[in-house]
Structures are given as C-alpha cells and as structure tokens.
Amino acid sequence: MNRTPALRIADLVKRYRTGEEALKGVSLAVAPGEIVGVIGPSGAGKSTLIRCINRLVEPTSGRVFLGDLELTALSGRALRRARRRIGMIFQEFALVERLTVMENVLSGRLGYVSFWQSFTRRFPPADIERAFALLERVGLIEHADKRADALSGGQRQRVGIARALAQEPDLLLIDEPTAALDPKTARQIMRLICEICRERRLPAIINIHDVVLAQQFVERIVGLRAGTIVFDGPIEALDDAALTRIYGEEDWTTVRQRAAAGRAWALDAERLEGFAE
C-alpha cells in the first residue's frame, strides 16, 4: 500500500494583518481514506486551517502537500488546477442562490472546462451524466431545475455535497457542515458525508464544534485550541482530560451521558425516518 499521506501539513502558521495568530505551527497528516474530525472552541483556527489547505486563506508560513504536490508552492493556473482536486463543503452551504441546483452541481466542474463552455452552460456530456448521478445519490434528482434558494437547509447541504463531489476530488474539506441545520438533519447530513467518503475512500477533514456529533461519526479526532493542536488520536482516547485540554474546564461526564443518549436518539430517529419527513 502507498504510504504517502493523502495530505500533509507541516508547521503551518497564519498571522492575520490584525496581528492575531490564528495558527501557531500546526502539523498534521491524513492517511488515504481517513476521516479526521477537527474540534475546538470558536476562534481556535479550525476554519483558517482548512482554508489554508486550498489557499482561500494565504498561510503566513509552513507547507501543505496534497500527495506529492506542494500546494503552498503553487500560484495562478497551477493553483487553480490543484484546487479542483480539493472539494469543499461549507457551513451555510454557500450555494449560488440564484442559480439552479444543476448549475450549482456543475459549478464543481469549472476548473475542468473552458470559460466558453461554462458561460454557455454546455458542459461535456460526461459532466452532465456525473451531475445527474450525484443528484440521484443525494436524493435530489427531481429538484435539478429548481433554484437553489427554493430548497430547505438539508437539501441545500446535499447540493453542496454534490458540488464538491462533482470535482472528483482527492480530498474533502468540510467546514461545520451541520451548524446551520436542525439536529436530525445534521445527523442525516453527517451520515451521508461519511458514507460517501467511505464508498470512495476519500480522505476528509471535518471541522465540527459539536463534540457529540463528532464522536458518533468519525474515528480520529484532532483538537485545536488557540491555533495549536492539543489532541490527536482515536475517538476512544478523547476522555475528560483531553476535552478539558481542548475546551477548558467543564462537566464532561454530563456531556458524555448526552453523547450516549444522542447515539440512542439517532438510532431512534433512523427508525422514525420517513415518518418525520
């Protein structure tokens, strides 16, 4: 098996112009097919971290490798070519609201087609076929020609997932995918994302502030606090001490009980699905 990590981050530092240091030398490797949940309090640098990977935010120093390709050394066209290998899913979905669902999914192909093809919306047949297949996979095939802003929150996030997958990415960056969703939809979306990642052996970094949800769906947790990784390990190792290191003092026993209850609740919710929809 190939031992090169899918993603490797070395000594990543991001200092904003305000002087605030969002990342203070973060190093991290993600194995092929691995799903990593990044948890941490608000302002810990989770969003900055994933945006430094595809360079939506310019890191101050440090290096990022996608396979063997050094992302931090790229610019212009080469950077755009690298970006199309990295799918991104956003907190508030970030769909282009006035475009149709299909256009939003096809926008995942922008890095692969010419301006003229995208301007006239004449995408290659293979792209159209893939887009339809993805809409089927996320269960939105009958909404293809609706405007994105006509959909509910959960449906919009499914479009966001389809758009990211349309890129045929080698890596998924997922920023708080469930923060704008109700608890039940949040679980459905997390389940869908993790299922798809496993189907495709797609490595992913998921920023998530809901510890309970993270514990239910991912195997490896990275805890970020004030721009520094303070925990990195399997979900079983995330004990009270680790949570205290990440978030500070809190009654973690109660949180864990809630997590257990949440797991039971999720199972119930699965049974009741269809009834509630």
């Binding site: 939506l56 755009r80 991104m88 609201e97 926008s107 995208s118 758009r163």
Partner: peptide, 21 residues
C-alpha cells in the same frame, strides 16, 4: 455574499468563471 464567491473559487474556477458563476 462572500461565501458564494469563496465556494466557486474553491472549485478551481478562473477569474472570468468566478465573475459568471
């Protein structure tokens, strides 16, 4: 809305495509 611009930029779109999409 900046988020929509960011999302299109993340797909590897060019400047002209960003403008259009």
């Amino acid at each position: 809305e900046h988020a929509q611009v960011e999302a299109i930029r993340a797909t590897g779109a060019s400047w002209a495509q960003l403008l259009n999409y």
